[in-house]
């Protein structure tokens, strides 16, 4: 059952979905929040399509309807297809995913379900498929999206379903 919005967003319409959301009523974190969000997309070695796959897998765990409905245009431009998105959203990773994509899913699942329980097999596979910088990027983006997605859910006001929406990175 949908929860009513627990916080009113600020008055006004800047056209920036973060500034215009409830996050806009805490100016002390707004700029760091926007800077981190942009850095996760712009400043790491993983391509946007992989960032988006990890973000969407994480959104499945948090149950954020809005996060699951959104597609970032940079990921679409990077070649992310809706078919691939649906594979990522299945409970068990699709066999047609590449080994690297399956590891992305496994990493996000581990982060959400049992961060202290990473096994040696997954650890070795991650080190084989990803560089050090890619692993750090993946880690930080999952931490970031997980926290922001939990925040969105906890603030309430989420509908039961939303249509797919393509958006740009808010800056």
């Amino acid at each position: 059952m949908p929860v009513s919005a627990r916080v009113q967003p600020p008055a006004g319409n800047s056209g920036n979905v973060i500034r215009d959301s409830a996050l806009g009523i805490v100016p002390g974190t707004l700029e760091p929040y926007l800077a981190l969000n942009a850095a996760v997309w712009d400043a790491g070695p993983l391509p946007a399509a992989e960032v988006e796959l990890a973000r969407l897998r994480n959104a499945r765990h948090t149950g954020c309807v809005m996060c699951q409905a959104v597609r970032y245009d940079v990921a679409i431009s990077d070649g992310l297809t809706e078919e691939k998105v649906q594979m990522i959203r299945a409970q068990e990773p699709d066999a047609e995913l590449s080994p690297r994509e399956r590891l992305l899913v496994a990493f996000v699942d581990q982060y959400n379900l049992d961060p202290a329980g990473l096994g040696s097999d997954l650890r070795s596979a991650l080190l084989e498929q990803f560089t050090e910088a890619e692993l750090l990027h993946l880690s930080l983006l999952v931490a970031w999206f997980n926290g922001s997605s939990r925040c969105a859910v906890a603030l309430g006001g989420m509908p039961e379903a939303m249509p797919r929406m393509e958006i740009s990175i808010p800056r």
Binding site: A143, G147, C151, L155
Partner: peptide, 25 residues
Amino acid sequence: EDGLVALLQALGVFDGLIRLGLLWQ
């Protein structure tokens, strides 16, 4: 209300850093 938003943002980064430490060992 702004305190609730602030708390949620704090919980997000706290939880994130703790999980990263556990995951990275």
